[in-house]
Amino acid sequence: MSTFRPLRKIKQYIFDKPYKQGEVLNHRYRIEKVLGAGSFGLVYRCLDEGDGNIVAVKQLRPSLRRKEKERLFFQHEINILQYLNHPSIPTLIEFFEEKDQLFYAMEYINGENMAITIFEKKQKFTEKEALQFVRPLVDTIGYLHSNDIYHGDLRIPNIMIENNQPVLIDLGLAHCFNEKIIPKIAPKERIEKVDVEMLKQDDYFDLGDLLLFLLYTTYEGKTKKTLPWTEELFLQSGTTYLLRRLLGIDNKHTNVEEIVKDFNEAIKQLRK
């Protein structure tokens, strides 16, 4: 284990004290509770005293606020959210700085983090349920890609469930090549070295990995020997075909339209 990780945890414990319940941010957002703490930020549920709505406010960790790279990452996420308009991505309300701390307020997702659903509540997904749950995420990823944005961190903790539908959160590690969002400030030769196709395939792989994880929620191993998923899971041929392509085992998808087609075919097969 890296010696830097424990030191970072200690530093976060000392410096990254969350604001307390009842405190008001930006003369507007009264904190009701801390929703979570990630590697880069703290997230609060707040009452917007201006209009009475519930919002989420994200704060860059105080221990990172002096680091130019981390501030740029935070601003990068703000720039992306400010540009996007999609029902499965929280809407940015505003960003602000207070007492040398960086924040932004966004739409509150009235749902549950998928990590709680899976790891604490132990919810299981049938093959059909898993396909139907991940299917809307394909559209969200397609929307991002159409705007030259690649999420790069499509994991269970970065998905909320609202009205049984997935909402994609945390774009802090997203790669953006849309000049309307992020002006080109890097040298041309550096930009040209970025493998956009690899970033696209990484998002496709993450979709497949998420689908496979959900399919395993109903798996009950009958042997201690670890076998490939193709042998442990008894899936319809359409689902297997979809997974093999998403995971890059064979005949990788070249665009989101192909993925949508394969998802629809797999779901249709289960209806027969």
Rank of each mutant, 00 (worst) to 15 (best):
G248I: 05
L227F: 00
G50T: 09
L235V: 09
V260E: 13
I161W: 06
F205M: 06
M114P: 00
R71T: 07
K128D: 09
F15V: 13
S2T: 13
I54D: 07
L246V: 03
Y241G: 11
G152Q: 05
N147A: 12
G38V: 02
G248D: 06
T230C: 05
G22K: 07
K272M: 15
G142M: 07
Q75C: 06
F95V: 07
F234G: 13
I93Y: 08
Q12D: 14
E231P: 04
N113E: 12
R271P: 02
E120S: 12
P187V: 03
L154N: 04
E70Q: 10
R66H: 12
F96H: 03
L243S: 06
E179P: 11
P87L: 09
H86K: 09
I181D: 03
R244F: 03
Y204M: 11
L102N: 04
L207P: 01
K11T: 15
V167I: 14
M114H: 01
L171H: 01
G208C: 02
N110C: 10
K69W: 06
G36K: 07
I267G: 01
Q21T: 13
I89Y: 02
V24L: 13
A105V: 03
L246I: 04
E70I: 03
P166S: 08
P228G: 08
K58W: 02
R30G: 04
L92P: 03
D209P: 01
Y29F: 14
I78W: 00
L214E: 03
L227N: 03
R245G: 10
V260N: 13
A115E: 14
D148M: 12
R5V: 15
E70C: 05
I249D: 08
D100N: 14
R28Q: 09
K99H: 14
E257I: 10
E232D: 06
K9W: 07
I181V: 13
S88N: 14
N79T: 01
E97V: 14
N158Y: 02
C176P: 02
L72E: 15
Q101W: 06
Y104T: 08
R30M: 14
L246R: 02
E192M: 06
S2M: 12
E77Q: 04
T3I: 15
I141C: 09
G221R: 08
C176N: 01
W229Q: 00
K11F: 11
Q201N: 11
E232I: 05
F125W: 08
E192N: 05
H151T: 08
L84D: 06
I118Y: 07
S146D: 15
G50K: 12
R66N: 13
E197L: 15
G38I: 08
Y143V: 05
Y13R: 10
I116L: 15
L215D: 06
